[in-house]
Design a binder for these strands. Sequence first.
RNA 1: CGGGCUGUGGCGCAGUUUGGUAGCGCACUGCGUUUGGGACGCAGGGGUCGCCGGUUCAAAUCCGGCCAGCCCGACCA
Length: 487
Amino acid sequence: MSTKKRDLGVTPLSEDVSAWYNEIVFKAELADRGPAKGTMVIRPYGFAIWELLQQQLDQRFKDTGHVNAYFPLFIPESYLHREADHVEGFSPELAVVTHAGGKKLDEPLIVRPTSETVIGEMYARWISSYRDLPVLINAWNNVVRWELRPRIFLRTTEFLWQEGHTAHADEAEAMEETLQMLDVYAEFARNVAAIPMIEGEKTPGERFAGAVRTFTIEGMMRDGKALQSGTSHYLGTNFARAFDITFTDENNEVQLVHTTSWGMSTRMIGAVILAHGDDQGLVLPPRLAPTQIVIIPIGRDESGEAAQTKAAELAASLRAAGVRVHVDDRDASPGFKFNDWELKGVPLRAELGPRDLEAGHVLVAHRVGEHDEKGRPVKEAIPFSEFVGRVPHMLDEYHGYLLARADTYREANTSVADDWDAFAGQVGTGFALAFHCGRPECENDIKAATSATPRCIPTYGEAAEGVCIRCDNPSAYGKLLVFGRAY
RNA sequence: CGGGCUGUGGCGCAGUUUGGUAGCGCACUGCGUUUGGGACGCAGGGGUCGCCGGUUCAAAUCCGGCCAGCCCGACCA
């Protein structure tokens, strides 16, 4: 039985997270590996998740006053060099085009790893007066970073993302923007992806190359590791100075703009897989599920046809109510279909067979929820008359259920570490809250000893002082930091 | 890039030690029977054994080089 399960299913999450993750990605048909190292092909099912993510995130950008634009893939190499920290940070992972059109180029072109530089160049041309500010632009694109150890969705050589780039008249406004977008990410993760995030600031050692301050949202995956799922940077006047982005203020004085940048990527799909999945496969939050409910007609001949007809009718009504529904009329056994849709993470399943037609109801099961003695999901009989009206509510409730589950899990695996032994143990299974002295050498020392890093200085942490968990020097940052092993 | 492991039909594997021209399960195709938790029978199709070179009468198997993937590190959304 268990052997059979293994042949047909996936390696249990509890047994080997990496093997489980890869099998889910391939078997649920989210993505495949591309021929060039570190590249991925996002398959239709995976791309449908990305499109839903994109739409809902994009709407939030529009709601906060941003507009979309597109900037070029190629950047002259010299541009990267204009901001010293930026080039230093990105040099090791650049893909560089040296030949094109059959000739060696006079100046190599960089395939963008991020677009601060080209966008800075353009903003310098577009901005001249305080009346031109703020500039609030977002771009949906692909970027390339030559990663040494690729993992589908989590760390691929080429990935899809959005990068927002804004320019402001002063620091206060730019900081407000930086924090606003961090909140947008956290709210999106919570209300769309059903993943609770810790918002906070990166320590100097973990800052984005070229930023003055870097903020992050960190989620806890089901193995207790952290995943940086979105970042928002206050870039100060670093890029303004490098690209000469200036404006004339109300007093006729020339000033440098203050810029921000913020991004969320296809890594978020990896976050969804790792934050919600289980031994049966993928678990999708309903607002990102390409199919929110699958209807499985059961039976053959006349009763089978009757079930098909009823299923099509219910599906049409659901669709009209805005529900993403699919009728599985494949020529396969019901059991096969149940397992298949569970692997694919579909939130709700409705079974409709001769007995249900007779009784005038469908049997609805949740992908994750209560189980009976046999370990099977509890199925609720819902009369046809109530079914279409109830599904949207069931989806909302299910979202809340997944979120609460992730919240509970994170809280159960997060605790304050008072001494080094407790700290070392805690970061092995989850997050540890601890004081730190703020010295980069000490961060490295902790990483070497435990492979844990400071994930962030949490925004909502209470003010407190103490001594460093590692070296006993006085604490920096004025509060406890979140430490954990990261993807 | 350092350490460990692996490349054989779509997927998972055996065969490699001891060279003799490729096999199993699942999947796939056709027909029939089946349909409430991964159905069954019969008949089929599909592989220059990761790539290049070498040794040999003969290479999946031996030798050299390269490439790719996985796990553990350093880098990172």
